[in-house]
Design a protein around this nucleic acid. Structure first.
Length: 348
DNA sequence: GATACGTGGAG
DNA sequence: TCTCCAAGTAT
């Protein structure tokens, strides 16, 4: 007899091991919606009491829409990410204004404030039976391990591939239950650390388990950890204008981005001296921050970079273009987040 | 694609 | 104490 297909094994496991959670005893769209928004980046145990109190206070979308924002926020107080409460409230008013029923497809739900890709799929599959996979953190981890996905899961293409894997685990007749089964499996068995692979119904086909180190997945960050490096930035300011340099378009990393001249080099006094010498300053590793000499503010920086993105000393300063810009002008330039940090550190 | 957004639990 | 991060979304 052939072994049961994966979607069936998954469902069987879920029915035997699922936790009894308040929102699992209903398929009412509003209740599912509230639970899914509350569960965004928030632990199940934390959500439970909030969910029960919220539904008692606002039993349906009409009551929620009729409430003052202040009341809604009060009910949310302590849960965190308060934008969720405001957007849920706003969305409830939109729903009531357009008839009182939630959109029944993921695409329709997706247009409501506070409902992103995940939440739209969750509500559509659980409350309305649409066969769309939910790619939350749990499912991402589960599918990346099943396939031993080596690509960075922050990349859109990799995530699309994992969504395909999740779609393959869906029972088309019970997509909501399948999705919850994947999330439950990810939360209780395929955990971030110390996964319980012996208890996993999908262990037989899991490539990460076969590889011997499931915790290696999901891969984020190009496969290599970030490293702390020490560097220095030169904020050269004259008459209210700041000297910026731009990389050549030929450079692979951040071409065309304006930056203050800076170097990044792992604990290399030589590199620091080279830059300091170029601008006539004197600088040594470990000196206090914000030293000003002749209009030049030198900033020590400790930042995290990926080894693949390490540039040679003075990489930016050696770019083909240099220019002076008022701080107000910089808002319209393509700049890196690092520039913003540096300018904030050096004040107005 | 990187970041900000809140809080509390686990290792 | 400290880091990581948990059923993400919006910008």
């Amino acid at each position: 007899m052939a072994p049961k297909p994966a979607p069936a094994r998954l469902l069987a496991w879920y029915r035997a091991h699922r936790r009894d959670l308040p929102w699992r005893s209903t398929r009412e769209p509003y209740a599912i919606w509230v639970s899914e928004v509350m569960l965004q980046q928030t632990r199940v145990e934390t959500v439970i009491p909030y969910y029960e109190r919220f539904l008692e206070r606002f039993p349906g979308v009409e009551q929620l829409a009729a409430a003052d924002e202040e009341e809604v926020l009060a009910a949310w107080s302590g849960l965190g990410y308060y934008r969720r409460a405001r957007q849920l409230h706003r969305a409830a008013r939109e729903v009531v204004a357009s008839g009182g029923d939630l959109p029944i497809t993921a695409a329709g739900l997706r247009r409501l404030p506070g409902i992103g890709e995940y939440t739209a799929a969750a509500i559509a599959s659980i409350a309305f039976g649409e066969a769309v996979p939910t790619l939350d953190g749990n499912v991402l981890r589960l599918t990346s391990r099943l396939t031993a996905e080596a690509g960075d899961v922050r990349r859109a293409a990799v995530r699309r591939g994992l969504a395909e894997v999740a779609a393959g685990l869906l029972d088309p007749v019970r997509p909501g239950e399948s999705n919850q089964a994947m999330m439950e499996l990810g939360a209780t068995v395929c955990r971030p650390r110390a996964p319980r692979c012996l208890a996993c119904p999908l262990g037989e086909g899991c490539r990460a388990l076969a590889g011997g180190d499931p915790e290696r997945f999901p891969v984020a960050g190009g496969g290599r950890p970030t490293e702390k490096v020490f560097g220095v930035a030169a904020v050269v300011e004259t008459e209210g204008r700041v000297l910026l340099a731009r990389r050549s378009a030929a450079e692979a990393f951040l071409p065309g981005i304006w930056e203050v001249p800076w170097v990044v080099e792992s604990r290399s006094p030589a590199a620091a001296a080279a830059l300091a010498g170029r601008y006539g300053g004197e600088w040594r590793l470990g000196e206090p921050l914000g030293k000003v000499r002749h209009g030049i503010t030198w900033r020590d920086l400790e930042i995290e970079v990926r080894p693949a993105h390490r540039r040679s000393p003075g990489g930016v300063a050696e770019g083909p273009e240099m220019g002076w810009f008022a701080r107000s002008e910089m808002e319209s330039l393509p700049t890196s987040s690092l520039l913003g940090k540096i300018l904030r550190l050096t004040g107005a």
